[in-house]
C-alpha cells in the first residue's frame, strides 16, 4: 500500500484568516499560501510531524473531505458539523470564528405563532430539527446565501442564519427571535486516520491546544 500524504483541509475565506495567528502559534509555516495565493494545494511542514499538504476548500466541504478520509485533519465551523452530522472526530474547540445560529424575523412578526411558518435558510437540517423539537411544522426554503432578503420580499416569514455582529440583520430590518446554536471553529480528524496515525494527529492537537490557551484570553 502506498501511503497517502497527510492532508489538512482548511476553509478558504474569513475563517482561515481568523485561524492564521493560531496556526502560526502552533508552528505551521503558511508562507506558501501568501506566495501563491491562487493555488488550492500547498506543501507545509508540520513541526515534529514532517511534510504535509494543505488543501484550501469551501468551508462547507471541509468535513466531507475529512469524513471520506481524503484529508486526515480539518478546520471547520461547528455550524457545518451541526448541519451535516459528518462522522468525524471533533476533539478541539479552537475558540475562534465565534457566532450564533439564530432564528430572525421582522420586529412585528413572530414565526413561532404562525400555523406553518416559511423559513429561508442555508441550514435546512438545523432549521427543520429546531421546529421539530418544538413540535411545530415549518416549511423550509433552502437558499445558498444573502438569506436576509427573503423576509423583505415575501419569500419567507423568517430566516435561520449565522449572526456575527447583527449589523446585516439591522440594516435589513430583522431582529433575533431565538438563538439555536453557539458556533465556533473546531479541529476535526478522520476516524481511521486518528487510529492509523495517532502520533502525528495527537501532536498537532496538543500544539493547537496550547496555542488556543495562549491566544484566547
Amino acid at each position: 500500500m502506498t501511503s497517502v500524504p497527510l492532508r489538512l483541509g482548511l476553509p478558504k475565506g474569513r475563517l482561515l484568516e481568523q485561524a492564521r495567528p493560531l496556526l502560526r502559534a502552533a508552528g505551521l509555516d503558511l508562507s506558501s499560501l501568501d506566495q501563491q495565493a491562487r493555488r488550492l494545494v500547498h506543501p507545509v511542514e508540520l513541526p515534529e510531524i514532517g511534510p504535509a499538504e494543505i488543501l484550501l476548500l469551501r468551508p462547507s466541504d471541509v468535513a466531507v473531505y475529512v469524513a471520506h478520509g481524503v484529508c486526515a485533519i480539518g478546520i471547520v465551523g461547528s455550524d457545518v458539523l451541526a448541519e451535516q452530522h459528518p462522522d468525524v472526530l471533533a476533539p478541539l474547540d479552537l475558540k475562534l470564528g465565534r457566532c450564533r445560529i439564530c432564528l430572525c424575523a421582522a420586529v412585528d412578526s413572530d414565526p413561532y405563532r404562525q400555523e406553518t411558518p416559511r423559513i429561508a435558510t442555508k441550514y435546512p437540517r438545523i432549521a427543520t430539527e429546531h421546529f421539530l423539537s418544538l413540535g411545530a411544522p415549518a416549511e423550509i426554503v433552502e437558499l445558498s446565501g444573502n438569506v436576509e432578503i427573503a423576509p423583505l420580499v415575501g419569500l419567507a416569514d423568517g430566516i435561520v442564519d449565522i449572526v456575527e455582529t447583527g449589523e446585516t440583520l439591522a440594516k435589513n430590518g430583522l431582529v433575533i427571535k431565538a438563538v439555536l446554536e453557539q458556533v465556533s471553529a473546531r479541529l476535526i480528524f478522520n476516524r481511521a486516520a486518528a487510529k492509523l496515525r495517532p502520533g502525528p494527529l495527537s501532536a498537532l492537537e496538543e500544539r493547537l491546544r496550547r496555542a488556543v490557551a495562549e491566544v484566547t484570553p
Binding site: S3, V4, A192, L196
Partner: peptide
C-alpha cells in the same frame, strides 16, 4: 473492537 487499515475512511 474495531479494525482499521490504510485506504479505508472508517473501521
Amino acid at each position: 473492537f474495531r479494525g482499521y487499515t490504510e485506504g479505508a475512511a472508517d473501521a
